[in-house]
Write a protein that binds this DNA or RNA. Structure first.
Lengths: 345, 345
DNA sequence: CCAGTTTTCCAAAGCGCTTTGAAGACTGCG
DNA sequence: CGCAGTCTTCAAAGCGCTTTGGAAAACTGG
């Protein structure tokens, strides 16, 4: 059923019906109700393809997911971010379109999205330092919001980020207050902007107390269970092993836990662990009592808010870039405790 | 730049240009090359909104993600499935559109997708037994492929599934062969079709040897670390605790591991664990040596293949429903070993 | 009761593409 | 040279909606 036929059945012109459906004021309230009721009854919905062509808007937001040629991983926070953003989109009548592209085609993917008018804007995921996508998108004029930040970008741009530096600084301070001096950093890949900021927070906290972070206790790799395990295992094998770990994610944290337990050490007593907790729905840090002490910030909420920013940018294209910095909370769990008496060795 | 203007610059009619671009035979090869070259040079891309209206095809596939009113979790395998399906879509010029909807609106979401013509087909995720979506989609005539199966459905439909029953039967047999007799099942929610099949495989293997599975060793819940931990912890506290666990996912498995270690038991020696491994890119079961013995089946590959089936269904709507059953492989890791001598108690 | 408003509705022109039906430009053959 | 047959190109009619510019109808107040 199309508009023409639907209007005919109502004895109205397509114009009036369209206006009634879209809430324009120049239609009698009684008429509008009649139209609305009939639409529901006859299950009429305007064809979205026609609507998009006529209005010139795609009513869709793009998310480009680059996949490395072989087995690059899908970012595990992705699902939750998407869920959050999707809520916002649905509420506002937008669709979410995902493009999975080989990572060397990413630029082409954005250009295509713009040229074909498939979406009205995009969210940029996993920004690196000085990320080229910022310039590209600014140049081609496709509205965007970065989830995270791209330090070093010349042009201003919209972003939403967690205050990673402060989060890791606070976590480090917490460990220092517990007496820990051999604190290890099990970081994500440090060309990622967020990981770089976390390292700065980690370092700053120690330097503020006149301490120098030991280079052998700072590691960075992909945030998987396996890599977390490997990094922790090798550090625990050092002559002066760490008494505490600051870990980039829940998943790496599980690897660290495994490494600690393999050495027969007790978490929270022999070794303390703080993780960053993205509050993923399928990876809860305990039900009531947190398992890990953690810096927590909901990535789902980040998705919701990033989407809101993007939609407002699209609605009002003249506006300034918008930025939003979320604070992580430090939640105390069972994985931390005072530094053990230096009995060992 | 639109087709009309682009054609004018080339000194051709829009008709010819359109045909050249779309590979129709009735255009001179020399002309086609000239058009192609110009398109690249001037960066012309047909507007997808107009194309979709004119062709009557959406060139998009929908994935509906239901979110329960409060904090329902996002399925952790979702990201990898999407990545796999997305590869197939991209290769074939299709977009992927995700709809995040409150779970009580799911039916309405499908109806809307159909009525508005936003997508050409959908993938159904997380089927339950006798899933109502199968009938709904058949009824409204929206092509679909189920990821998993919906046992009890009357009408035939297309699906792609892992042979969950056989996988769990083999895993159980493997444990039985190692001498285990107190084997626990830490299953997913059993109104989910895949979980129900796994339980059948688990039970069958034991019954085939004249054994009766102990009811107190069969549990089912959401597949989270926390729930896995809780189920395992309570079973380990039984007077006759299990010597082996068959676990529905890597994540639950981590909870089981934690419970085992909390009791001071060693995995692979005191207690064996087999998990089902979806081969998620961010949740690898070890780099070279598998951490867990596991039934493995790549959910990413499932995504790729399910998408292929759906596209073929769309291309040839007259065809029969297609089904595909993937076998999981049993891979041997470090988490299993012979049943310990009955020294305990 | 009527000119002037305001309200309510409509005809028709797009949006940028694809596709049908037809015409023009070439062939080869008698 | 003329014509049937084949290639190549084009004009115009949609696809199903929104939106502009009016016109008709329904209210106003003097």
């Amino acid at each position: 059923m199309n508009l023409k036929e639907f209007a005919r059945q109502l004895g109205l012109s397509p114009t009036t019906v369209s206006r009634a459906l879209n809430g324009y004021p120049e239609v009698n309230e009684a008429t509008r109700e009649r139209v609305m009721a009939a639409a529901k009854r006859l299950n009429y919905r305007p064809n979205s393809r026609a609507q998009r062509l006529a209005t010139g808007r795609a009513m869709a937001i793009g998310h480009v997911i680059p996949i490395a040629n072989k087995h690059e991983m899908v970012n595990p926070v992705f699902a939750d971010f998407i869920a959050g953003a999707g809520e916002t989109y649905s509420r506002n009548g937008y669709d979410m379109v995902l493009s999975v592209v080989p990572d060397n085609d990413e630029e082409a993917a954005y250009r295509e999205l713009k040229a074909r008018g498939t979406v009205d804007g995009v969210i940029v995921h996993g920004p690196r330092m000085d990320d080229p996508r910022v310039r590209l998108l600014t140049e081609i004029g496709l509205p965007f919001v970065v989830h995270g930040r791209a330090s070093g970008s010349q042009t201003p741009y919209s972003w939403l980020d967690v205050n990673n530096r402060r989060a890791f600084r606070r976590a480090t301070d917490f460990l220092l207050d517990l007496g820990h001096r051999r604190i290890a950093l099990v970081n994500g890949l440090e060309f990622m902007d967020f990981a770089m900021r976390r390292r700065i927070g980690f370092t700053e906290a120690q330097e503020a107390r006149g301490l120098t972070p030991a280079p052998e206790l700072m590691s960075s790799a992909e945030m998987t269970e396996g890599r977390g395990h490997a990094m922790a295992a090798s550090m625990l094998a050092l002559p002066e092993p760490p008494t505490a770990f600051l870990v980039a994610s829940m998943i790496s944290g599980m690897g660290v836990r495994r490494a600690v337990e393999e050495r027969g050490l007790r978490i929270g007593r022999d070794v303390s662990i703080i993780i960053h907790d993205d509050d993923l729905s399928y990876m809860k840090n305990g039900e009531d009592v947190p398992i890990y002490t953690a810096t927590r910030s909901s990535v789902r909420e980040a998705g919701r808010q990033a989407a809101e920013i993007l939609l407002s940018l699209i609605t009002d294209p003249s506006g300034e870039p918008q930025t939003r910095l979320l604070e992580a909370e430090l939640i105390i769990g069972q994985s931390t405790g005072p530094v053990p008496a230096p009995a060992r060795t």
